[in-house]
Write a protein that binds this DNA or RNA. Structure first.
Lengths: 337, 337
DNA sequence: CCCACCTAGGACAGCTCCCGTCCTACTTCC
DNA sequence: GGAAGTAGGACGGGAGCTGTCCTAGGTGGG
């Protein structure tokens, strides 16, 4: 058996731990001489993985950042943590890396041992605490199934609930996954309709690859992203908010969460104007409500209406409830600690 | 040079792609005969990585889920996606895997090429759109620095802003990172004070490992988690909410986001009671406000007060803005649309 | 039904590479 | 200066790897 390859992999695994390993310890662990360790280190370096060595007493080896990604050797818990992290981000879309996120997730889930997969499942469902806001969130599993089918040029079968509510069976040749706004779309060639279609991933269920491989087709558009945007115009329902916030621009920008939220332009030392990035009403409303600052909404009217409805709900919830006689001893005026 | 080890790694990388590879194609890519490919596959299997082969025409090899995690071979974009995902989850804490999350992140960032690190940085800051809520979020970089120092038994230097506001310099021997509630704490032996201390990670800045290694000390407590909970009693400021929500239990539970949010107990077909998990006022308020359902808060009084303040702010923001001043014509009794 | 295409694996010859044991050189911290 | 670490050349024996044969078995399409 390939003794030395296994040892190299093992060595790589040890060196990825964020600590320094003296050669003698490595030699003891891998049951070879220190000379062999030195040669292994040399080999790793030749393979492009920069093993950094600190000289002198208290020295040792560790893997440094190089020009290419070395193979990541994860223990069980780390693998689960990564899977959970990817599922939570992939489900909600992060600007710029949606597709890579799904690819990485598909790659990981393909090799994830069954017992770990279960843990990811239970943890994963327990961690969708983001305001569901825009409606149903996407099941990360659907994304990975579709991504795998796309990479493998396999036909996919699934059930699809169109806007109206009719449930249909589809057989398609998947072409690409596209994240637009806060939604995922599948661009595919529908074999029954004999034409290209786009599907909202949150509306499809029970997708599975049929195993039938097909020749790749050419999409009648420059790229899939443009195709989706073109077809989905009007359905997206995102809004750009303009609001004045009474607080220092720097602090407000920080609380709104970086550049992705939109632009904050200072008016004077104590107020600023927020031009939001396009987003759903729910998210825009939530961001403003959670700011902890006074604000005024200028646009759009829908946001004002939404906020007003929310404010009314909150008032009704706190003003009386079923019986005010539920005796709240400390009184409602006491500020919280 | 170790030709065959490199080839094995390469092969592993190809097999991780979610598609099937016929042996001839692999042979062409790796510039060896198909016989060697078969031998390489055999080697991988001996190393414990289950290479699944489908027979017949249209057959091929692919890596299946086994009992241990194989080394993950990621391309640049996938690595960035994972780093971004981990940073966003590590910064906010996910129940049960906080520590593994940070370990995985430390491992990845240790070997992440510089150009990718930059991309992670820009994407990472652009994606903290969660309601900052509980105050300052933790810089994931601080977590990785501390985790690495802990693993390596190295002293760490940083600046610390205590509650009052005085900025002090600290030199400590880090012992463990603990996630409690929505916060990260560092348990460490303070070399200047000559005693154990806990630090809130969101309040420290510019941490760096000094490179000086020390012998591990024994914490005067059963485990670090208990130690932190003991010391931080009272400072945590988390609350458990009890509220009635007027909507079907199933739907409400789904929107609240799984088990982690607390327990939803049906009252009748159209209402239910929510006993929340302990959380900050901001999050509890946000969850309720974003439900899109009528609700009544029973406990705690602080949450009622917080919600009322928020409702008032929202009303002021939407009712008239600058012109309508304080006049609230329709009053608070009008049900929202 | 048979053929094409795939995986699976034994035998063998040739040759490369790998390992352990020596050895010396250099750096760093105590 | 000494101890402990990395760095690396020389060498001999042995293990492992590769390509070229070969046969066996599974699967799907014409």
């Amino acid at each position: 058996m390939s003794e030395t390859s296994a040892r190299l992999l093992n060595l790589l695994s040890l060196l990825q731990t964020p600590r320094e390993w003296p050669g003698r310890e490595l030699a003891a662990r891998l049951r070879v001489t220190t000379r062999t360790i030195r040669r292994d280190v040399e080999r790793l370096r030749e393979l492009g993985y920069p093993v950094h060595a600190s000289m002198g007493a208290e020295g040792g080896y560790r893997l440094a950042a190089g020009t290419a990604m070395p193979p990541l050797l994860l223990d069980d818990e780390e693998a689960v943590a990564i899977a959970v992290g990817l599922r939570s981000t992939a489900g909600h879309t992060i600007a710029g890396i949606e597709e890579a996120s799904v690819r990485a997730l598909a790659k990981l889930e393909q090799v994830l041992p069954a017992r770990l997969r279960r843990r990811v499942g239970t943890l994963g469902t327990a961690t969708v605490p983001l305001p569901a806001g825009d409606g149903p969130t996407v099941d990360p599993e659907h994304l990975t199934v579709l991504a795998a089918a796309i990479a493998n040029h396999e036909r996919v079968r699934f059930r699809y609930r169109a806007g109206a509510g009719e449930l249909t069976r589809r057989l398609v040749e998947p072409h690409r996954l596209v994240a637009a706004g806060r939604r995922w779309y599948l661009v595919a060639f529908d074999n029954d309709r004999d034409d290209w279609r786009t599907f909202r991933v949150d509306r499809l269920s029970e997708p599975f690859a049929t195993g039938v491989r097909t020749a790749p087709r050419e999409l009648p558009a420059a790229d899939a992203g443009a195709y989706v945007r073109e077809r989905m115009r009007g359905t997206a329902a995102t809004y750009r908010a303009v609001a004045t916030v009474y607080g220092p621009a720097g602090e407000v920008a920080a609380r709104l969460g970086g550049r992705a939220a939109g632009e904050v332009e200072p008016l004077d030392g104590e107020s600023c104007r927020w031009h939001s990035a396009p987003d759903s009403l729910e998210w825009l409303a939530m961001r403003l409500a959670m700011l902890g600052r006074e604000f005024t909404v200028h646009e759009p009217a829908e946001l004002t209406a939404y906020l007003r409805a929310m404010g009314d709900r909150v008032h009704r919830a706190t003003d009386g409830g079923e019986t005010d006689a539920t005796a709240r001893p400390t009184g409602r005026d006491t500020p919280g600690g």
